[in-house]
Design a protein around this nucleic acid. Sequence first.
DNA 1: TTGTAGGCGTTATCAG
DNA 2: CTGATAACGCCTACAA
Lengths: 354, 354
Amino acid sequence: MTTNGTVPAAKPAGAQSGTASITNVAALANVSTATVSRVLSGKRAKDDDIARRVRAAAEELNYSVNYAASALRSDVTNTIGLIIPSATDPLSAQLLDELEPLTDVDSQQLLLGIGATQEKQEERIESLVARNVDGLIIVTAPGAELAATLERQQIPIVQVGGRQRSFRTSMVSIDDNAAMEMSVRHLAESGVRSVAYLANRDMSFESAELFAMFHTQVRSYSLHTDRAWNQFGEKTVQRGFHCAMRLFGDALDRSGRDDLYRLRPEALICCDDTVAFGAMVALDALGLAVPGDVRIIGYGDSPLALTTMPQLTSVRPPVRQTVAEALRLIAAGPASPAHITLPPQLVARGSTGD
Amino acid sequence: MTTNGTVPAAKPAGAQSGTASITNVAALANVSTATVSRVLSGKRAKDDDIARRVRAAAEELNYSVNYAASALRSDVTNTIGLIIPSATDPLSAQLLDELEPLTDVDSQQLLLGIGATQEKQEERIESLVARNVDGLIIVTAPGAELAATLERQQIPIVQVGGRQRSFRTSMVSIDDNAAMEMSVRHLAESGVRSVAYLANRDMSFESAELFAMFHTQVRSYSLHTDRAWNQFGEKTVQRGFHCAMRLFGDALDRSGRDDLYRLRPEALICCDDTVAFGAMVALDALGLAVPGDVRIIGYGDSPLALTTMPQLTSVRPPVRQTVAEALRLIAAGPASPAHITLPPQLVARGSTGD
DNA sequence: TTGTAGGCGTTATCAG
DNA sequence: CTGATAACGCCTACAA
């Protein structure tokens, strides 16, 4: 036996406190370092006296594994990389808030990379891969095309949102076409005859596709719309205000006409809650009632949606499920990529009826 | 010489590609691993043929250091931990967006922890310290008291915002008292006679202090205010709307009185741009003009401030300087803590004049 | 300035 | 199941 028969209160060798290593724990528990490693990492079936002794010793010495050493030996770093275009992007922020607690229960850590352009995102991918992250979640920047960079990597990668262009990596996306279908149907069922769409201009193919989907759905529900009503633009309050002013600014003059619904929309679908909010402010200023004169649907189900009067009907992205699926796909490893599409949820509130 | 006279195209030993190690580079450059380490880490003065050969070899093999091994040997992980209450907190998000590019140029990585309560924040601190981060930046959650936890750590820690309660750690804070002074002075100089303050209720000592500071400044500029006008509340659009409705709801009845400025404030200072925005919407609905009847100042200089009409005067927190100082203090090490207070900037726009 | 050699803390391997 | 041992890749004290 190399360990002494008595069990001395083994002190850490290092000068600074708080640096107990596996050797100290092993000495205190009177077992080998290998056993300590096995017990603490759960690779040992029995929960006998030895296991208890090891845990007690680790506890007493306030031991925690050295992740660097562990990573060096086992090629597992217990880290997950997340790349987002910007922390001020609402969806990215929501994902962060949902993701962090989940990684924590796995005693994993989140390495963050921010890149708003394709080039920056590629840089961040390279640098996180160089850190040996166990997996990578990427919220693609609008218009970024990362397929080539992603294909090259050996680790599980999950792309969130954006368009799938690689069959070697996984993707979890939000079914915005379904959201559009829900929105138009919801409006049609509430008796609306015409509708306008304030779309998002972010240069992406998805936006264009969604714009087409809007028209498809409008036709399928026999609603009216007008080329001049539907425009691409920013996701800002101001933009919503201006658009509503343009659409309804001279509406009062024409009241009484029975084809009024063809002159101005009876409902607005907005690409973002902020746009919807701006539109509601404008309508209020014009003396038009929501939902009486105009019904409104936003997107994102941001906190803003609860603060308008009436409260805003909005499309809620499935953030929690997205995060859960992403982590599941990473745990599954790089060999089993999958493409998952999750439906959002239409949260009906006062702005589309009562 | 142990290396062969010829220079073979040394291949990585591992089966998978992309795993070249320092040994491979050394072999290809025909030098020792020690020299490679010194050249690539910049601990070697000359830039001679050897240095070039090493760099060329590293390039050719697509070599990048194994951070785990490097950390194990040298106790430097090239990682910085950041703890924030929530990614949806505007200040935290702005800090993230500013911080990430700066850590990147240092080839450092950001480890993120999210915790909205004192308990969660302490958990995250422990877990990031266990990861051997080189430094820790903490955006304190409202009301959290981390002094005891922070004192215990051996690494450089910078607290952002909040109240300093430890002389062993650094702090970078925003001088909100100065912001209040600027705001009141700005209003006084524009001829306002009375002012109300829509304060933030977050249970923190700072909010209470700021509330007192408001009254101090109001007195010092001989302005009028009223106990009933100034209340604590949420940072939401709705709250601003309600407060303004309450303050100005029956204002029209009293117009014409020459002591009107004592019955309702001629200016509003808001704890947040969203509150200011809500107030502007309410004022618009009430037929009161901004800045003609009421002048308004927000806080945060969020994108929202540019989308109101007129644009919103707001206090801009010194995010960039905060991040720069935090990184500087971390680089300086744990032995030289400092307390730094940075002044915000009052961005004057239409809501307080022209 | 360069190379040699040892060790950082952990886990995988292998023999008992 | 346990313990002894080697190896992960890198950095650095030391010797040349």
